[in-house]
Nucleic acid binder design. Structure first.
Lengths: 131, 131
DNA sequence: TGCATACGTGCACGTATGTGCACTAATTGT
DNA sequence: ACAATTAGTGCACATACGTGCACGTATGCA
């Protein structure tokens, strides 16, 4: 799903600082590939059920059953979403008996998930209509 | 702007951090509304052109022309995307002569945008964990 | 062997979404 | 008044996406 740019041996980050912002290290012109990669990841997060699943995983590995119970969504739906997350490389799996244990592939993803939930929380509890 | 020194002053944040992390707020089930809100915001970010536009805005206000030139996308496309961002409340606008100046509505968005681009950058350059 | 548990997949269907095209509106200069 | 610049909108079309249903696979237990 998320097209991983073929061998990008860039030595360093393709980001550069913009301007107009003091004291903040900003980057400029992310470039099409980076934007596509970022958008790809965001598309995976941009669905309530999947976001819930990822949120659950952000606190540790879980089996499909655990994730399903917590999400409240139908089992087949959860399975489909987990498949997308797997194919996009956001999560890894391992088998344990008849269970399949899901795990976040990238620990750094936790930051993004937390920041996302955090922002939504601010929208809801903070400034409903800008306060 | 409304950016006060971040803190937990709102009525009550519906968040509790998961676990496995010490000294960090424990979260417990974000709840359907919060998940929908978060997913809604993410859907807005989950498109290369829009993400590019928001990225540009994260370094300050810009006119439609500036945003269009920077994004490389057709003008009508940019206009449609800006309309969505406007309707979703992510950006504000003001008029200046025959220009319309766009601005991020919420400073918090900058964090989310940066975190997003940062994560994508890590994926592409080989995940050099950053702080 | 027979059966229940735990997951995954292919397919069909309705909706959401991105894009190009044609057209309109507001503002500025001559 | 007329034309150019700057920006927005409605419409049509193709694609992407989420969901339910039916069916298949694998593991564990009696």
């Amino acid at each position: 799903m998320i097209s991983r740019p073929s061998s990008a041996l860039s030595p360093s980050s393709a980001l550069s600082p913009p301007l107009a912002e003091p004291s903040l290290t900003h980057m400029v012109t992310p470039g099409p590939e980076l934007l596509d990669t970022a958008a790809g990841t965001l598309r995976m997060l941009a669905e309530p059920t999947r976001l819930h699943l990822l949120w659950q995983l952000s606190s540790g590995p879980k089996t499909v059953t655990e994730l399903t119970d917590a999400s409240g969504a139908p089992r087949t739906v959860v399975s489909q979403h987990l498949a997308k997350l797997r194919l996009s490389g956001l999560v890894d799996t391992r088998k344990d008996g008849r269970h399949v244990i899901y795990n976040l592939h990238d620990g750094h993803l936790v930051r993004l998930i937390r920041e996302t939930i955090n922002h939504a929380d601010h929208l809801m509890t903070g400034e409903p209509i800008h306060g």
